Computed example of a mutant assay.
Amino acid sequence: MAVPYEHLSGAWRYPAAARALHWLIALLVLVVWPFGMVIKFIKDDAKTGFYFVHESFGFLILWLMLARLAVRLINPPPPRPPLPLWQERIATLNHVLLYAALIAQPIFGFLATNAFGFPLSWFGLVTVPSPIGKSPLAPTLMSVHVFLGWSILVLFALHIAGVIHHHVIRRDPTLQRML
C-alpha cells in the first residue's frame, strides 16, 4: 500500500546532508562517466580539457563520497519499508558496492594518472602530489579504474531499477526518503 509523501514522518527521510550529497554525487557521476568514456576518441588538442574535467570532478567525487560515508556513519539511514529478506540483502549489497566503487574508482584513476607521469591539477587550483610517481603499474591501475567505471554503471542501473520497482510497482515511500 502506498504511503503518501505528506504522511511520512521525518524519521523516514534521510538527513538533509545525506540527501544533498546523494544527488550531487549522482549528478557528478553523470558528468564524469561520459567524459571518461569519450576521452580516447577526442582529438589531441581538446583531450587535455576532457582529462581536466574528468580528473577534477572525479577527485571531487572521492571527497564527497568520504563526506557521505561520514554522514552515513554518524546518522544511520532511516528504516526502510518492510521488504522480503532477499530484497533487503540485494539492496544492502548494491549500496555497499556502490559506496566502495565510488570511493575506490577515483583513487585508482588518480594513481593511474600519476603512474603515467601526470600530476593532478585539481581544478587548476591545487597540484595534488603523487604518492607513487611514474610507475610501470600504470596500465594495471588504469585497467582497475576502467573496470570500476563499468561496475559503477551496472550498479547505478540496478539502483535505478530498484527505485522504479519501489515507486511504480510497490508504490511505497522508498523514493521519498531521498527527496
Score class of each variant (00 low, 15 high):
21 L>W: 08
81 P>E: 14
171 R>P: 05
4 P>D: 10
148 L>D: 14
5 Y>C: 11
70 A>C: 03
160 I>Y: 07
45 D>G: 02
110 F>C: 04
99 Y>M: 12
77 P>D: 09
73 L>S: 04
82 P>G: 07
156 F>Q: 08
145 H>D: 12
58 G>W: 10
91 A>D: 05
41 F>D: 12
51 Y>T: 02
9 S>H: 05
54 H>P: 04
139 P>W: 13
154 V>E: 06
160 I>H: 01
164 I>H: 09
1 M>K: 13
165 H>M: 14
68 R>Y: 05
33 W>M: 11
145 H>R: 11
50 F>H: 11
141 L>D: 11
161 A>W: 03
81 P>G: 06
127 T>R: 15
146 V>W: 09
110 F>Y: 13
11 A>P: 00
70 A>W: 02
70 A>Y: 04
12 W>G: 02
169 I>K: 15
100 A>V: 14
52 F>A: 06
104 A>W: 06
162 G>S: 09
73 L>D: 08
150 W>Q: 12
100 A>I: 10
109 G>F: 08
148 L>K: 12
5 Y>M: 14
120 L>S: 03
156 F>K: 05
35 F>V: 05
60 L>P: 00
82 P>W: 10
121 S>Q: 08
19 R>T: 03
34 P>S: 03
156 F>H: 09
25 I>W: 01
179 L>M: 14
97 L>V: 08
176 Q>Y: 14
113 T>R: 15
173 P>N: 13
96 V>D: 00
170 R>L: 12
7 H>E: 12
54 H>W: 07
30 L>A: 14
166 H>L: 02
9 S>Y: 00
114 N>I: 03
168 V>Y: 03
29 V>A: 03
113 T>D: 12
114 N>S: 12
103 I>A: 07
72 R>C: 05
154 V>I: 14
175 L>F: 13
89 R>G: 02
9 S>Q: 04
35 F>G: 10
61 I>T: 13
74 I>R: 01
137 L>A: 15
102 L>A: 14
120 L>E: 01
156 F>D: 11
40 K>Y: 08
